[in-house]
Design a protein around this nucleic acid. Structure first.
Lengths: 106, 106
DNA sequence: GACATATGAAACCAAAAGGTACTACATAAG
DNA sequence: CTTATGTAGTACCTTTTGGTTTCATATGTC
């Protein structure tokens, strides 16, 4: 319940969200990603590193190229963390239901 | 597909995640939240502001106190954004299934 | 009214993040 | 072998962020 911080941090940037959307279309090398942005290769590389740290992408070497693809782990981790709070909303609704019942009995 | 950045940014910090967990237990004033941290009131206040910007909490005035509670909107927004990528995984699995079929036909 | 308490906001500071330029290395192609 | 391409890494700069201190305001309490 603490390591997902890297994942959320990675998601808290519009550029990185865009990169993820692109990778949902197809796997890409950093070079290909760079072509879609007005930014240095080194700049993009930094974003990729953060995405990888958040386990949102994974990299596979192929010759001198590195293929970047979406990594399900990060997404799963986000889903799980947020799901933890579902219980909270359920309880709230239960409490609300009880209140309504009490009101009706008056 | 861009404003949820504030929400993810708010979630990308361990202190703020802790605060959310506390508020899942019960609603709290800033003062009560401060008691659980080794941090200045102003410091906590800043975190609360970011959580509010991410629509993860909402504030209700009560006399001189301000009651902070979880706000479902931010959580819903996260769920929705991540769900967008579900399609990706589904397609991947479909493609994998096709591959397996082709292999079996050989 | 005088005083305590709960809060908001601004000024300031150190550290982290977003970005660039530059260097170096590995692989592909002539 | 030489050259071009795809990449990683470091040094550096500027902006943002996490945090404190300080001041001002609004509501409760005696």
């Amino acid at each position: 319940m603490i390591t997902n911080v890297a994942t959320f941090k990675a998601l808290g940037d519009p550029t990185r969200q865009q990169i993820l959307a692109m990778l949902a279309g197809r796997d890409m090398t950093i070079g290909e990603v760079v072509d879609h942005f007005d930014m240095t290769r080194a700049g993009v590389k930094k974003h990729m590193k953060l995405l990888e740290a958040g386990r949102l992408i994974s990299v596979k070497a192929d010759g001198r190229e590195r293929i970047n693809s979406l990594n399900r782990e990060g997404f799963k981790s986000v889903m799980q963390w947020v799901s933890y709070f579902d219980q909270f909303w359920d309880d709230k609704l239960d409490a609300l239901a009880s209140l309504v019942e009490q009101e009706e009995q008056k």
